[in-house]
Design a binder for these strands. Sequence first.
DNA 1: CTCGGGACCTAAACCGGTTTAGTCGTGAGG
DNA 2: CCTCACGACTAAACCGGTTTAGGTCCCGAG
Lengths: 337, 337
Amino acid sequence: MARPTINDVATAAGVSKGAVSFALNDRPGLAPGTRARILEVAEQLGWTPSPRARALSVSKALAVGLVVARPPEVFRADAFFPAFISGLEVVLSERGHALLLMVAEHDDAATYRRLAKEGRVDGVLVTDLQVDDPRPALLAELGLPAVVVGPSVGQEVPTLGVDDGPGVRAAVEHLVSLGHRHIAHVSGPQTMVHGRSRRTAWAEALREAGLPEGVCVEADFSAESGAAATRALLDLAEPPTAIVYANDLMAMAGLSLAVARGISVPGDLSVTGYDDTEIAAHLQPSLTTVTTDVVAWGRAAATRLLEMVDGREPSPVDLPPARLVVRASTGPAPRRP
Amino acid sequence: MARPTINDVATAAGVSKGAVSFALNDRPGLAPGTRARILEVAEQLGWTPSPRARALSVSKALAVGLVVARPPEVFRADAFFPAFISGLEVVLSERGHALLLMVAEHDDAATYRRLAKEGRVDGVLVTDLQVDDPRPALLAELGLPAVVVGPSVGQEVPTLGVDDGPGVRAAVEHLVSLGHRHIAHVSGPQTMVHGRSRRTAWAEALREAGLPEGVCVEADFSAESGAAATRALLDLAEPPTAIVYANDLMAMAGLSLAVARGISVPGDLSVTGYDDTEIAAHLQPSLTTVTTDVVAWGRAAATRLLEMVDGREPSPVDLPPARLVVRASTGPAPRRP
DNA sequence: CTCGGGACCTAAACCGGTTTAGTCGTGAGG
DNA sequence: CCTCACGACTAAACCGGTTTAGGTCCCGAG
């Protein structure tokens, strides 16, 4: 038997389909008895409105989009998306919205344009914001509600997310308290907001601790680049005694490289990561890193986006801050000869 | 200015909207000149048909669903999905289909039911097939086209994917050629098809090599469980000289555990993984593992699903087989005292 | 000259909802 | 007693496409 339509319900309940629609969306103008009867019939027939038809008539897509603007290799390695998506889904599905996922390799402007033009989504989530990213302006121009996900530092664009500064700062302070004075940083691309904010936090924390400016090598969040950056740091005339990495993947690659060179971690070198990947706790030595509740973050982002789509007041979000998890990859600074 | 509709195009071209529809879907019955004129006007107005309206009238969703049936923690750690999704997207987007992602924690039957009932998707991709998985039957009952993604071993249900057997077998053969005779396996859950197929391949390869039955410890693909399984193996009276892990995550955890115990890898113990995670190549020692072209896999799955949705003949798929990547975590078997 | 039959195109129904305009009956107010 | 307002509901338009059932017009054959 085919899915029942609103007409079937109307006929069965002996009313017009308008009445059924009224009952469903509980709008005023129906006698309580009638409303109850309609709902009962609907229940009994197992009818739920077709999102397709509804989407057409209310001119909404009942879906939001997430454009992954990373090249597949990077997307692949990242611990962020799966957890984030889990969080999104919780909120979206209970509100009857679907999550559309798109992967845009390069020229993602076209993807956003198409999304808006085809009307497949009511709003989008923007991740991996670049410095001077053209997308917020583009989306504003397209009139597509958007929530920019990420740290909120130094952006004109309002963003939603967990600031990574405190986590990175905590890592530096932790190292300082262990006696480290040469704390280097392997950063993400400085073209990306979260690459820049982590670097800034590291630099500031050093300054606050009264230490001289540290060495920073820019990498791109990949294992490969993390290893290369570490190599550069270890080859310095005066190598650092601690390295703060902008993510776990680079930290793990760096840690392995150091070990391969016969450098003891944390005996000779301390390292910290960012993300708290599942494997981080099981490495040898286990990785000191920064953890955030990404699932909660996803929930908050979805909630906010739906509010924007419905034109409601944005409710304040309260996300637990990033937190340093101290493990075995950090230890007292070695005595310098 | 609002999006132009088919009516605007029809008026501008001086024809009926039916004609515009004919031109768009190039159906016969239009004079070549008229067709060209209509398309030109459409082009000029920047009109593309609304997927919403089209979905309603052709009774199709123009979208396919991917239900991630893993608990978030597992989803999070997996290297498979991002690459797979990238592959799907390539095919789907060029065919005008969207990818709907849903996360189902436990009773995913409800999710599939809802998906089918609401008509939000024309078909679904089923991953992480369990042994005696109820989903294929459920989907058949719901009449929802589905492509089951995974190794095709011993299943009545037709599946699409790269067999993991050859990769695992290659790993065992590689170890055998290095002189290993005690090759253990840390498997995935035996309730899952790919947990079982990898284990079977391992066992068969041992038999083919004329070796006695090996020890297998069942784990669940998580780092935690991989470490625990490794601990159990190392505590045996006669520990193995090599361990074949069912995925990289467990292999990495196991490798780290061994190193922490002062066991040399690959001196005393060789280990292999499966997945070729990005970090695998950068560990110390780097991990010998099995790699598959997951992106191609995604493309093939999407292609097949769209064929099913359109009721066309399934075209044969030809995926590159899984391939062993030999790195530094495997070496000659140690001489037994 | 008439009739049959394509070729080409239009009008209208349809998909399944939402929403607006309007109808009907009833009770209160004048 | 008549009107008016209001509550409860229905009919119909509408969202933007696709598709089917005609309706012209022109041509060639009988």
